[in-house]
Design a protein around this nucleic acid. Structure first.
Lengths: 414, 414
DNA sequence: GTGTCGGCTGTAGGCCGACAA
DNA sequence: TTGTCGGCCTACAGCCGACAC
């Protein structure tokens, strides 16, 4: 994988992931994924601040989810705002291919990184002073200072996603003593147009080099009328591109913007299958779901499933996208999603629910189910045919694959 | 018509037109236009810096030009860059409508404005000083100074497209004396992020109020990878939206960006008809064409038609879009288009070319001509059948036609 | 007529510890 | 431990005419 910034290419995959947020995972090249046009449309809606309100053409051959192989992925950062996004090229898969490769978990293993992030205060961003480094952060990621010097100080060099160097004076002073970035900081703030509430991020890579990234506060995401394409054309473009790719079995390219998109819409097939075919869901069931907190860490919230049904029965009947209506335990849940997808939650298992009951529950609530993988198998068939299931999942969890098998042209039928 | 800046609405239509450039014309609401998907794609290509290279779905029912009625138009300016663009909603027309409206020339009459523009110099944009006002410009658009005061000076207030007020100190000083904008100028420069080479524009409206706008140098237009939609999806979105609108006879919305688009792609139908059906064109013919100059005025260039034929014979056979290959008289013509459309040029009529000779010339060079309005009549038929021509155009030269004849499905062979 | 420069001046950018949350 | 402030100093933003093209 490579990181592309504008036209230049750099290698800071881990920095990209840090900027994308703690919950973002990326599928690996060659793995199988489920692509959701609905989720893609939501990203467009969130970016254009506009719902899809026009009369769209219907694409009867475009299912709510398209099973694809990830042909390519490149990581990017907006040249101006440093906003991160990924470009993925997807190859729709037909029903007849060998599906053994699908056992691959299909996500990047996130190596643990030495990093810290801080939400900028008014003092941090004002022109009056510098940046106050949290104590633990300085100890953890910055090179140790020589405390015998008076005052202890050093020059810090860090690179951003575009591989630009930023120089800062790191000093330990004041009464009581604290770590500060002074000279060079205000240039960085004005160049990136940082404001109080935005997040800055420092990390150390394997070679001990410092990297830094930024994450703009959510409000900043607003107001991109784009001036290039009407939102109608964008919605239609998303659907038409997917429909055409599905119909002609050809590759198509999408952009995934982890900070703008309400949810991931390219899901590893293993994760999707596990959630859809191997998890019992019913109204009243309680679950956990991991969400990003204000300070860029994660927290598990508890909720209850209050309903199961189509988010958009007209355009997308029988879709698993946000098919669960949920309520949240905590009263501060105002901003949390009221609809989630199966693969986002972790059911709080109860010993009273046995496995086979799920299909009954599902079927009773949703008489016609999405086809899932199913250009070939319907969900009912999958759920009711252990043989077929095991043939799908029988090759083990380790996920080693031969790259040759990743070329779809070269994929034999065995 | 209204100008929409971000979400707010203001009324500076003339300012918008000044910023758009001297050659830009806008159709009026209710008038009939020809919309060219090819031209729209070119705007996307220019904005994304990418050609359409993927395998596009074919839209067999989408002709190279779509005859529409302009249902609505709103003028906009990018909140950050002040880049101007127009949002147009187009209603494809069916054969049964009353066509009396088509006699309307269909473009905004551009009222003469008191204005001046200046390409910013290094001194204008440096933090070291202010803005040097050209002498004639100061006399023409700014309120007269009281030269009895020492020094003569006044406060200038001007509004931009977003209706924001900008305050400047206008002073007449130095040896030799000259007009300058000092206090307030540098704030304007840094706010709009102006650089040497960009253009600033002052004008006075009917009430004597000052307005100002900016036009970024061309180079600035580069590098908008958009991060939201792949260029493939954009191209496909443009085509799919138009095809769907044509098939279902429903309105669709497009954005026209006059500074980014190589050519206008929504052409008043009268202008289109006149050029396509009432102008004799042949290889070797000489023509004039008006183009924008470096300093935002216009100039006529002379050229010769060197060929006639499809720009893209595969995707857009029989299209009038850029169907003329041309050469330019002046050697400095490197950056000028090598292909233009019929309605962009003004043939230099020669008394030796008589009317009917044109069809012979046309036929010899272009065995298969674009069908123009015609899915039913070939160009040859039109050209060779004076009766049919006169039946289409028999109501005089002003271009009144029966809309029934314009609908391709509804066009009888008589 | 106007682009760029050197000279001068004042404001705000930016480093410091004090102090309090 | 760290956010904000007043004090202080200096860099540069910004106003001026000189000068040249």
């Amino acid at each position: 994988m490579e990181v592309v910034a504008g036209d230049k290419k750099v290698q800071n995959t881990t920095l990209w992931l840090e900027c994308a947020g703690p919950l973002v995972t990326l599928p690996v090249v060659g793995s199988y994924v489920a692509y959701f046009p609905q989720g893609h449309s939501e990203q467009v809606a969130a970016s254009t601040q506009k719902e899809a309100d026009m009369q769209f053409p219907s694409y009867p051959n475009l299912p709510p989810q398209l099973i694809c192989q990830l042909y390519n992925i490149t990581l990017h950062a907006d040249q101006e705002t440093d906003e991160v996004y990924a470009q993925m090229t997807l190859q729709p898969v037909t029903g007849e291919k060998d599906q053994s490769l699908m056992s691959n978990l299909g996500i990047q293993t996130k190596e643990p990184t030495i990093s810290f992030s801080k939400i900028l205060t008014a003092s941090d961003t004002s022109t009056h002073g510098g940046f106050s480094i949290p104590r633990r952060a300085a100890d953890k990621v910055f090179p140790p200072l020589d405390y015998t010097k008076q005052p202890p100080a050093q020059e810090i060099v860090a690179r951003d996603l575009h591989n630009n160097e930023w120089h800062f004076r790191h000093i330990f002073r004041g009464q009581p003593r604290r770590h500060l970035l002074t000279t060079g900081w205000s240039i960085f703030v004005s160049s990136k147009r940082l404001q109080a509430g935005d997040t800055v991020l420092f990390m150390r890579d394997q070679n001990g080099h410092l990297l830094l990234g930024i994450r703009c506060a959510k409000r900043q995401q607003t107001a991109i009328p784009s001036s290039l394409l009407s939102s109608d054309s964008m919605f239609i473009g998303v659907l038409a591109a997917a429909a055409h790719a599905a119909a002609t079995n050809s590759r198509f390219t999408i952009f995934y913007n982890p900070r703008a998109s309400p949810s991931e819409f390219v899901i590893p097939l293993v994760k999707y299958n596990k959630a859809v075919f191997h998890t019992q869901i019913s109204v009243g069931m309680r679950f956990r779901m991991e969400l990003e907190t204000e300070d860029s860490s994660t927290r598990r919230y508890i909720g209850t499933i209050t309903g199961i049904g189509d988010l958009d029965p007209i355009r997308w009947p029988n879709s698993y996208w946000r098919s669960l209506k949920v309520g949240w335990d905590e009263s501060t849940a105002g901003q949390r999603q009221r609809r989630v997808s199966l693969w986002e939650i972790e059911p709080l298992s109860s010993p009273f629910i046995v496995c086979h009951s799920s299909s009954l529950l599902l079927r009773s609530k949703r008489p016609r189910l999405p086809q899932g993988l199913g250009q070939t198998l319907s969900s009912e068939e999958v759920l009711e045919s252990p043989m077929k299931q095991s043939s799908l999942w029988g090759r083990g969890e380790e996920g080693t694959t031969d790259i040759q098998n990743l070329n779809l042209q070269g994929l034999g039928l065995e």
